[in-house]
Design a protein around this nucleic acid. Structure first.
Lengths: 141, 141
DNA sequence: TTGCGTGCAAAGGTTTTGCATGGCA
DNA sequence: TGCCATGCAAAACCTTTGCACGCAA
């Protein structure tokens, strides 16, 4: 659980910059790999996986699987969660990511503790579902 | 996207029966594989994967990834993808997976809907954190 | 100088595919 | 009988590891 200090390298900066530049959209590991194979600033596969691992540990990036397809997806959340350590809501329809107010998160967290003695990790926990805009659209169809 | 008619075979029945017998608990592909390697009614790897694929297409079974661990998880949902299915609590320390009582899940779900208009997907949502037994141990250390 | 970071090659594990055979309807 | 299903072996994937070298602090 302890974190070693991170060195700043060309590769670590580039991976973070790239995934952060997606503005919250998610991307597959394969796509990241491909991006850094082709662009002039080549980065090895191993390094990319290891940087992603660190970003996930740091809570800057989320890792999850997209719809049963093999291969993980990554999504930058560093900007969202920097101040408050909030949970996220992930819309399975449009892919948008929302952050949950601290108040509600705490309430849920407390509930889980009372009922199950479970200490929720706000950074890692992601609620999946359908966001309000998508729910509206679906009801029209 | 079209479905061919399915033949009923010893293997297809056995796979469905096994996963349905878990009463909603999920299971990894590896565990299913193992089960049918060892039990007297041996079923080949390929067949198991293909049966699972069909069950997922039919909506009888859900496939998702358990956190970052490689390998998919499957869960029987019997065609009713209702809001009544349980969420899971995943302990980041010991790795145990717990089920969350329907009552609590509903409460949380309702809260998210009220506050954010977000319709939670109970099946996909996983709460990460530390379970009660691990919390106790940690406090002793 | 120290120890983390990098990247190649190779290993490890999961899932899919080719193909000949078996079995349901 | 006509297809679909099965299962072995092998291929195709995704991710991690071993190891020697590079480089930030």
């Amino acid at each position: 659980m302890k974190r070693s200090p991170h060195y700043s390298t060309r590769q670590s900066e580039a991976v973070l910059a790239y995934i952060a530049s997606l503005d919250g959209r998610h991307i597959t590991a394969a796509q990241i790999l491909e991006h850094f194979q082709s662009s002039e600033g080549h980065i090895g596969r191993t390094t990319i996986y290891r940087q992603l691992e660190k970003l996930v540990e740091d809570g800057k990036v989320l890792r999850y699987s997209c719809n049963g397809s093999p291969g993980a997806c990554y999504q930058y959340v560093g900007g969202i969660q920097s101040e408050e350590k909030n949970c996220h809501l992930k819309c399975e329809n449009c892919g948008s990511l929302f952050h949950l107010e601290d108040e509600v998160a705490k309430e849920i967290s407390r509930r889980l503790f009372e009922k199950k003695g479970f200490i929720m990790d706000n950074i890692k926990t992601v609620f999946y579902g359908v966001c309000s805009s998508c729910a509206k659209e679906e009801s029209h169809v």
